[in-house]
Design a protein around this nucleic acid. Structure first.
Lengths: 272, 272
DNA sequence: CGTTGACTTGACGGAAGTCAAAAGGTGTGG
DNA sequence: CCACACCTTTTGACTTCCGTCAAGTCAACG
């Protein structure tokens, strides 16, 4: 597993999409890098329903999912968590987790002690807001999943999930060309989309046959991004990719976001 | 339409489930009662995708829904909004609504000017947190909908929606016995559950035949609450009904919440 | 080399969708 | 008060997408 010199970077990056963080806040976020890291093997539970974790988990590498398993053994994933995502902020108010967090790949989490989190929130109201807004964004993603589950067929649903994940990785700066890490098994994918593994398998074959994606060695290659977007009927509004201050340019697509492959040009929040 | 002497009461009540609001905050919330109210007819759009409303809408009476319509005309509801719910808090940060808010009945909304909202948030950090947490609760409800759409059949899904709504009305203090306002047409219900109107119709007949519910004149009578809960496989964890401070009593059900039918005993947040 | 987990394939069944039409309400205007 | 339009609910026949069951392949790993 690679080293992660700045585990909190993707989080900072995500939050800065919405608010201009002050130097203080950035410092606070960067300080999280010093935090102890816990690693989980694929399949392990990071937080379990009914528990009340004493730390907030920040994904540093790997991938996890919010999951709920029903009494009959069926499972449904309700969100995919990638580096920069917080797993269980809700823990402050609510008496217990209402779902599981499970590692979909070997995954490293920074543990932010509840007290530490509490401090950050009381000290910085802009940070509080930033986190609130990030919660709202998660909510928007959930709504889109509902649309998919309620009104889209298997092809659209899977394609949509692929495209969404591609965009999220691009945003977080971890996209490499049109390929992204994709540790999910077809069974996991079925649990995410509300389908059966068998049907997912057949549908994936279709998508491959259409020349849209290639899926190998835990990576997803999107060979035809625009085709994928078309078949997914993907509308990126819900991800709120346009910068708040700026006049809304044209609708952003994956291609737009890919512009600098991994240049990582330091973006300066004063510049606007 | 009835008069609403305290339009902000349900909101206060909702927020106090999570945080002990200070006198100041309560005052601020009560002050919202003086706000102008706008009424919408059933079917009207309260906020449209792409817009950036200049006020936040607080539902005072009636019912609304978050909705998205796809290019092929299909519609999916993503949340039901009842008195005490805020429609579009996200509007502060995000450049535009990513979905519609539509009135499912004749509905009255208090309009909270953006500036006013802004003030409240900067003045009171506990209010900010309370609203954040209410966002988290909405998120939890959304997750549950995903489970329903992904892994539950038509009967379970509809029954689940009924039971959830029953509980929410009980919480907000507007439940009357086991009957609640239910202005949705079968078509609306289909859009909420991701089914077709025809199938909803047949499924409703089943639920009626099982003696679980009665649906007439825009009201839902739950004739067998426990039966409904059983068939819905309803687990109330996600609503976080237990009070945060208190040791978790037994799992609350609708019956528990109904105890004082509409007594409205002034609950004192000091008393604990 | 046997075991395991992931992926693949085929045959069949069933829950929900589609199409179409009728029946029942409700409100409006003559 | 009736007639009309319009919407919602109901019903039946037929289709389809996806689920189920079961077996089989393949690669990785101890």
């Amino acid at each position: 597993m690679r080293r992660h010199p700045e585990p909190a970077k993707p989080l900072t990056r995500k939050l800065e999409r919405f608010v201009s963080l002050e130097v203080e806040d950035r410092r606070r976020l960067e300080a999280l890098s010093a935090l102890p890291v816990q690693t989980f093997r694929r399949g392990q539970s990071i937080a379990a329903e009914g528990e009340k974790p004493s730390s907030v988990h920040l994904i540093v590498s790997g991938m996890a999912a919010r999951a709920r398993v029903l009494e009959n053994g069926q499972r449904q994933l309700m969100a995919l968590l990638i580096p920069g995502d917080l797993c269980d902020v809700e823990v402050f108010v609510l008496e217990a987790m209402d779902h599981d967090i499970v590692a979909l790949a070997d995954t490293a989490c920074a543990l932010i002690p509840a007290r530490r989190m509490e401090e950050m929130l009381t000290e910085s109201s802009s940070l509080t807001r930033a986190l609130w807004w990030s919660t709202m964004l998660d909510t928007a993603v959930l709504r889109e999943w509902i649309v998919g589950h309620g009104r889209r067929g298997a092809r659209e649903r899977i394609a949509h999930l692929f495209y969404e994940l591609l965009l999220r990785y691009c945003i977080s700066g971890a996209g490499e060309g049109f390929a992204i890490p994709f540790p999910l098994t077809q069974s996991d994918l079925a649990d995410a989309t509300g389908l059966t593994p068998v049907h997912v398998n057949r549908t994936l074959q279709e998508l491959r046959a259409l020349g849209l994606v290639e899926l190998e060695r835990k990576r997803l290659h999107v060979t035809d991004p625009d085709g994928l977007r078309r078949i997914a009927r993907f509308e990126s509004n819900y991800l709120h990719l346009g910068r708040p201050g700026q006049p809304c340019r044209r609708r952003p697509s994956a291609s737009d976001l890919m512009a600098p492959p991994a240049a990582g040009r330091e973006h300066d929040h004063q510049a606007r």
